[in-house]
């Protein structure tokens, strides 16, 4: 199922599952991720599943690229890991102060902001992966008309709660962070809770997410 394994630097395996991004390929990535996690391989210190890649990093004091590669190639990957699916609703305010890149998107997409919001809020998203910053969910898939590239120079600071679009994906900045996504609004919802060590993420891979537009008043009166 892995198309190709190469090295990323001297302390990681780069497993390529194919060039496309779709739920089938992503499910394979997640199956591998779960199987390797269960193996608890000595010296492996991190697994990063993404849309169509899995990066396995290891402690160079204990293992090297060749030894880990062999282990992964000979691994029996089970198919029985069904993704646990939750349905989650995220409130978003699109006030001028929050929708930092809506003008850029109007120009790039040749759509009015009303049209962009109508399409965005009418959609149910699938969570492919979490990461970049703690708990950030990568949600797909946006239709072609809403797809835009990242900013050419990433922002040094994107505000916490920002909801952004890039290519066929949407996400939420769970913390203030550098980043290059097109920001269309902001949510008051807590997406990542570090005090809950066993389950810090509100949204996990496989979950289904919808966004709900709220007013500025509702944003500031949120219980959070």
């Amino acid at each position: 199922m892995i198309k190709n394994i190469s090295n990323l630097g001297d302390a990681a395996l780069y497993c390529d599952f194919g060039s496309e991004v779709n739920k089938e390929i992503n499910s394979k990535v997640i199956q591998y991720f779960k199987s390797i996690q269960k193996e608890n391989i000595d010296g492996v210190n991190n697994l990063t599943p993404s849309y169509n890649k899995l990066i396995i990093s290891f402690d160079l004091r204990k293992k090297n690229f060749q030894t880990i590669k062999k282990l992964i190639e000979n691994l029996n990957v089970t198919n029985d890991d069904k993704l646990d699916t939750n349905r989650i609703k995220i409130p978003v305010c699109c006030d001028e102060n929050f929708s930092l890149d809506i003008k850029r998107l109007e120009e790039k997409l040749q759509l009015t902001r009303d049209k962009i919001y109508e399409k965005f809020f009418g959609k149910e998203f699938f969570c492919y992966m979490t990461g970049f910053i703690a708990g950030m969910p990568f949600l797909g898939d946006l239709e072609n008309e809403l797809q835009a590239k990242r900013l050419e120079t990433p922002r040094v600071k994107v505000p916490k709660g920002s909801v952004g679009l890039t290519e066929q994906f949407a996400n939420v900045y769970t913390f203030e962070s550098p980043g290059g996504w097109n920001i269309i609004g902001n949510t008051p919802q807590v997406i990542f809770d570090s005090t809950n060590e066993n389950n810090p993420n509100l949204i996990n891979p496989g979950d289904l997410v919808t966004f709900e537009q709220i007013t500025k008043d509702q944003y500031y009166n949120n219980d959070e």
Binding site: L8, T48, S50, N52, L54, S57, M129, F138, R150
Partner: peptide, 19 residues
């Protein structure tokens, strides 16, 4: 392409954005 499909990073990785 100045973008790739988002994927894992590690310390020491050198990325080059569009600029």
């Amino acid at each position: 392409d100045t973008n790739i499909k988002s994927e894992g990073l590690l310390k020491g990785v050198i990325q080059v954005p569009a600029d």
